Simulated assay, not measured.
Amino acid sequence: METLISGKNLKAYYVLDLWGSKKVVKAVDNVSLDILPNEIYGIAGESGCGKSTLLKALLALLDPPLRLMDGELLYNIEGRPTNVTLLKSETIRKLRWSFISYIPQGSMHVLNPVKRVRDTFIEILSSHVKKQTKEFLDLAVQHLKDLGLPERVLNMFPHQLSGGMRQRVTIALATVLKPRVIFADEPTTALDVVAQRAVMQLIRKIQNDLKNTVVLVTHDMGVHAQITTRMAIMYAGKIVEEGPTLEIFKNPLHPYTRYLIQSLPAIGDKKLRSGIPGSPPSLVAPPPGCRFHPRCPHASQRCREEEPLLKEIKPGHKVACFLMEG
């Protein structure tokens, strides 16, 4: 099967100069992954594990202090793998909204507070499509209707919309040019459960209608179970497990993945839930060997000294853990 986006040995670090002392935060450290057509690919893990930074690296959104220190990023554009790290910023800009689009954590980051929603639509459309303003508005109205959103929101300012409606408008903006890949970074953050459900249903509807690919970042394992088809588990800047979502939930191979799944509440189960022991490591000075070993009840001396590689244990199911080597 063809690959839409391929990251090879990506190292995306934050290089900070703090009062004359340089600190390097290894937020994404030697990560490789392939994103396929017509799938919802999830990236899960605790806060601070590097999920959002990996998304920025895949989007080529590398604003200082974030830097791509090493690795290769390939986009399959019209059947031809293109190394995005070698493209000029203007070429990358043209790919955004049409080949790839981005739904950030907060909808207010996208919506200009002093502009009506229609002006933001026109701004995005006019940068990629040569049409008249009326045609842009007709396109925006039809797109909103297709997504079940009222036409009146075009004449509203962002502050006049609820949080859930703002996020749905943001999703409409990100999908108006029918991109091949949509990156969504914690799209349900700060929303109530009803709004969360509406946003997730909208993302699923768009993916079904366009038959495109969605890359979804969220720490909520329940959301992954409901919507993603394949997922990666991140810990301390690395992918420790990757595979079909159903397979990971049925048979988690990495101890960290098991802890994440065990933390989910179950209907009718009144047992106390136990959290993951210990705390995540510093990404400035991560521990040697397996980065999870200080918190892992199964850690051996080998885990403390050697770093496990991400290996395929079953078809499509990979894990970085010495326990799986027998």
Rank of each mutant, 00 (worst) to 15 (best):
K311A: 13
V217N: 00
S274I: 13
P297E: 12
R273W: 07
A285L: 11
R258S: 09
P280C: 02
P244Y: 04
T218A: 02
C290A: 08
Y235M: 04
K250R: 15
V240W: 05
N208G: 01
N212I: 06
E312K: 00
L260T: 03
M234G: 04
P287W: 01
L210C: 02
P294R: 07
G268N: 10
I267V: 14
F292K: 00
R258N: 11
K270L: 14
N208F: 06
V284S: 06
Y235S: 04
T245E: 05
E241D: 09
P297R: 12
N208H: 08
C290S: 06
P281L: 11
Y235A: 06
G275T: 14
P277S: 12
P255N: 09
F249Y: 15
I261A: 07
H298K: 14
E306T: 12
A285E: 13
E305T: 15
A285D: 14
R291C: 05
A266P: 00
L310C: 10
Q207S: 09
I248R: 00
F292N: 00
V214G: 05
V214N: 00
P265F: 08
K311E: 15
S279W: 04
I276N: 07
V284P: 00
P286K: 09
R230G: 03
H293D: 05
S282H: 06
K270G: 00
R302Y: 05
V214Y: 05
L309K: 15
T218N: 08
H219Q: 12
I261E: 05
I267P: 03
K250T: 09
M231W: 07
R273G: 04
P244G: 01
S274C: 04
V215Q: 03
H219C: 02
H224G: 00
F292M: 01
M221G: 01
D209N: 13
P294Q: 10
T218H: 01
C303E: 03
P280A: 14
A299I: 14
A236Q: 04
P280R: 03
